[in-house]
Design a protein around this nucleic acid. Sequence first.
DNA 1: CTGTATCCAAACCGATACTG
DNA 2: CAGTATCGGTTTGGATACAG
Lengths: 118, 118
Amino acid sequence: MALKLRKTKAPPQIPHCPLTECMSLLGGAWTPNVVWYLSGGPRRFGELRADIPAISAKVLSARLRRLVAKGVIAREVMPTSPPSVEYSLTVLGEELVPAIKAIVSVGERLKRRHATYP
Amino acid sequence: MALKLRKTKAPPQIPHCPLTECMSLLGGAWTPNVVWYLSGGPRRFGELRADIPAISAKVLSARLRRLVAKGVIAREVMPTSPPSVEYSLTVLGEELVPAIKAIVSVGERLKRRHATYP
DNA sequence: CTGTATCCAAACCGATACTG
DNA sequence: CAGTATCGGTTTGGATACAG
């Protein structure tokens, strides 16, 4: 098959909602993790797979493609003998990092108190 | 049917990852919105439906139940003549707010930067 | 090494109808 | 008012195999 024809169905979102707007960039189970690991510097496909062991190649590939399409990350093919590809955050992608940092810090606090909620 | 038996299958997550840990609380398209609107104070079921017009009763109900089960929100039945129910953030839920705030503020900057929407 | 194709299971969502 | 039941459709994600 040449190219999957996108359905372009209206997404179930609140119009003009910044929260939904931003979540659409982070949508998908592993997307925040990908951005998070990329925030430490450029990474290759295989490195990201090692960073996030539970992710499948298919999903990682899909997330990467979507993030590139949205302008969150950049994809650069390195002309090495075994061809390698480097992904890195764009300026737009860097803007997402503080939000993810906030999520991580909440997650850490959640784990520390993990025993208590009703 | 009496009670849906939960499958309790191991979720596709990285163990001990604070980011995934926190994202599991926010899973589902409308969850962040629910928490966000609740951060303004306690709300009733119908009020939340009005806040998020595109959400269906079924999904709102499901999200609410899950958030209660996870300890993010509290559910209190008010003994009024037409019975009403109030939902509010727990202490754990309040901890999520800064993260969502960060996401919202990124979303706002994203919109200003693109400036492509009416 | 860097992906894509295919199959399949689960989660998600909306509309409608119905209960307490 | 505050949900739940059910049906149907869409989306997501994982496993495996395979291609450039």
